[in-house]
C-alpha cells in the first residue's frame, strides 16, 4: 500500500519530466543546497554552460521572490535574518527544454501590481526586454519592492518563450500565484 501510493506519486512527477520539486518552507540555505544539486545534475548531463546559467538564474530569482513575497512566512529575530517562506519550486524537462515553475500564496492587494508587471513583460520581444532591463538597472530602487522588478525582468530575459502565469483566489485576502518559465 505505502509503496504503491508513493510510487504513483513519484511516477506522476517523472511523467512530467520533473528533475526535482520542492514544496514547503524555503530559506536562503535551502535555496543554496537545491541550486547546487541542480547545477550538479545539469553539468553531469553535459548541458551547455549558457543553459545551466539561464536555468540557475531563473531558479534563484524565482526562489528569492518566494522568500520575499510569500504571504505564508515565518520570520524570527532570535536567530539573525531567519526567513522561512512557504512555496513551491519545480524544475523539469519537456520537449528538449528546461522549465521552472514557482508558486506561492500572496496578499490579494498586491496581485494587480504583479499582474500588470508580468503582462508588460509577456508582451515584450527579446530586444524590448533587454532595453527595459538596462533602463531598470539604472533606476533608483523602489521602496517596497526589495528589488523585485529587476528580478522579474531577469527571469523574462532568460526565457526562450513568453512567460506564463496565473492567479487563483484562496480566500478574501490571499491568492495562489504561479509562474512558469521555459528555457
Amino acid at each position: 500500500m505505502l509503496a504503491a501510493r508513493y510510487q504513483a506519486f513519484k511516477s506522476m512527477m517523472d511523467e512530467q519530466g520533473i528533475i526535482f520539486s520542492f514544496s514547503g518552507y524555503l530559506s536562503e540555505g535551502v535555496l543554496y543546497s537545491l541550486g547546487e544539486a541542480l547545477r550538479h545534475k545539469m553539468t553531469l548531463e553535459e548541458t551547455d554552460v549558457t543553459t545551466v546559467k539561464k536555468v540557475f538564474s531563473v531558479f534563484v530569482e524565482q526562489s528569492q521572490n518566494i522568500i520575499r513575497y510569500s504571504a505564508d512566512k515565518v520570520s524570527g529575530s532570535a536567530e539573525q535574518g531567519v526567513e522561512l517562506s512557504s512555496g513551491m519550486v519545480t524544475i523539469g524537462r519537456e520537449d528538449g527544454h528546461f522549465y521552472i515553475v514557482c508558486a506561492n500564496s500572496m496578499r490579494s492587494e498586491q496581485v494587480d501590481r504583479l499582474r500588470t508587471r508580468l503582462e508588460t513583460l509577456r508582451n515584450m520581444d527579446k530586444d524590448e526586454i533587454k532595453a527595459y532591463y538596462r533602463e531598470q538597472l539604472r533606476e533608483a530602487p523602489e521602496d517596497s519592492s526589495r528589488g523585485g522588478t529587476i528580478g522579474l525582468i531577469e527571469i523574462a530575459r532568460r526565457a526562450s518563450a513568453p512567460i506564463e502565469f496565473d492567479f487563483q483566489p484562496i480566500d478574501s485576502e490571499t491568492e495562489f500565484f504561479c509562474l512558469r518559465v521555459s528555457i
Binding site: 534563484v60 530569482e61 538597472l137 530602487p141
Partner: peptide
C-alpha cells in the same frame, strides 16, 4: 561567474 539581479543593481 554568476550574480543575481539585486547584485546586478
Amino acid at each position: 561567474v554568476y550574480f543575481n539581479s539585486s547584485s546586478a543593481k
